[in-house]
Deep mutational scan, measured.
Amino acid sequence: DEVRLHVNGHTIEFRGIDEEIFKILEEAAKRGADEEELRRLAEKLLR
């Protein structure tokens, strides 16, 4: 299960996240989070 999030012209792939987590990451990206911040956030949410 892989999703792709487009951030500042880059595509970031995440594996094993559900739609709810994806929406949180998408919102963070809209607020200016970079790839590293998004990955840290995803790790926290998946715990």
Rank of each mutant, 00 (worst) to 15 (best):
R15F: 15
L46M: 12
A33H: 07
E27Q: 12
H6M: 04
A29Y: 06
I24D: 03
H10Y: 01
E13Y: 03
D1I: 15
R15V: 15
L41Q: 03
A42P: 00
A33P: 02
V3I: 13
F22Q: 06
R4N: 06
L25G: 00
E36K: 14
E13G: 01
K30A: 08
R4G: 05
R15D: 15
T11S: 06
G32V: 04
G16Q: 03
E35W: 07
V3Y: 15
L38V: 08
L45Y: 06
I17Y: 03
A28N: 07
E26Y: 11
H10S: 10
V3L: 15
I17W: 02
E27P: 00
R4A: 05
L45M: 10
I24Q: 10
L5N: 02
T11M: 08
G32E: 01
R31T: 12
R4E: 06
D34N: 12
F14K: 04
R4I: 15
R31I: 09
I12M: 01
T11Q: 05
R40T: 12
E36P: 14
V7W: 01
L38Y: 01
R40F: 11
E2S: 14
F14L: 13
E27M: 12
E43G: 07
F22N: 02
R31H: 14
E37G: 10
K30L: 09
L46W: 03
E13L: 04
K23I: 09
A42H: 07
L46V: 14
G32H: 03
I24A: 11
H10T: 13
I12C: 03
K23M: 09
E27G: 09
F22E: 03
K44M: 13
R40Q: 11
E37Q: 12
R15E: 15
A42Q: 03
I21P: 01
E35I: 14
A33Y: 10
F14W: 01
G9L: 02
R47H: 13
A29V: 12
L46K: 13
R4H: 15
E36Y: 12
E35H: 06
I21V: 09
L25F: 02
R40W: 09
D1L: 14
G32K: 01
V7A: 04
G32D: 03
L5F: 02
E43S: 07
H10M: 13
I17F: 04
R39W: 08
L45V: 06
R40N: 13
L41N: 01
L25D: 00
E19I: 09
I17M: 08
L45F: 04
L45G: 05
R31Y: 08
L5M: 06
F22Y: 09
N8W: 00
E20M: 08
D18H: 04
I21E: 08
I12D: 06
R39F: 09
E2P: 11
H6D: 10
E27H: 11
E36I: 14
N8V: 02
I17N: 03
L41F: 05
K30T: 11
K23V: 09
L25C: 01
F14A: 08
G32T: 03
D34Y: 08
I17E: 05
I12R: 00
R15S: 15
L41W: 04
V3E: 04
E2L: 15
V7Q: 02
E13A: 03
K30P: 00
K44A: 11
R4W: 04
R39C: 07
I17A: 05
R47C: 14
L41C: 06
E13I: 15
R47L: 13
E35C: 05
R47I: 14
E2W: 13
E27L: 12
E43H: 06
K30E: 08
E35V: 14
E13Q: 01
E20D: 09
R39G: 04
E26Q: 13
L5R: 02
R39Q: 06
H10K: 15
E36L: 10
F22G: 05
H10L: 11
A28W: 11
F14Y: 03
H6Q: 14
E35G: 06
D18C: 06
E2T: 15
H10G: 07
F22S: 04
R4V: 12
A29L: 12
I21Y: 04
F22A: 08
R40C: 07
D1V: 14
G9W: 00
A28G: 03
R47G: 14
F14C: 06
T11E: 15
I24K: 13
E37H: 14
R31M: 12
I24W: 07
L45W: 04
E2K: 15
G9N: 03
A28M: 12
R39I: 14
I17V: 08
L41P: 00
F22M: 07
I24E: 09
R31C: 12
L46F: 04
R47V: 13
K44W: 09
L46I: 13
L45S: 06
I24H: 08
D1E: 10
V7L: 07
V7R: 01
N8L: 01
I21W: 05
G9Y: 00
L38W: 01
I21M: 15
L25T: 00
E43C: 06
K44N: 12
V3W: 15
I12Q: 01
N8C: 05
D34L: 12
E37V: 13
A28E: 08
T11V: 13
F22D: 02
E13S: 05
E19C: 06
I24T: 08
E43V: 06
K44S: 14
E13F: 02
L46G: 08
R4P: 03
R39L: 11
E13M: 03
E43K: 08
I24L: 13
H6F: 00
E26W: 08
A42E: 03
L38M: 04
L38H: 00
V7C: 01
D34T: 13
G16T: 03
A29M: 07
E36V: 13
R47N: 14
G9P: 02
R40L: 12
R31E: 12
D1S: 13
E36R: 11
G16D: 15
E20H: 12
R40K: 13
L25S: 00
R15C: 08
I12Y: 00
L45Q: 06
G16F: 02
E2H: 11
L41K: 02
E19T: 07
L38F: 03
A28H: 13
E43Y: 03
I21G: 15
V3N: 11
K23C: 04
L41V: 06
I17P: 02
E35Q: 06
L46H: 05
R4T: 10
E37N: 09
E13K: 04
K30D: 06
F14R: 04
D34G: 11
E35F: 10
E37A: 10
A42V: 12
F22I: 11
E35N: 05
A42W: 04
I24S: 07
V3G: 07
A29Q: 05
E36F: 12
A42K: 01
T11L: 07
R40G: 13
L46A: 10
F22L: 10
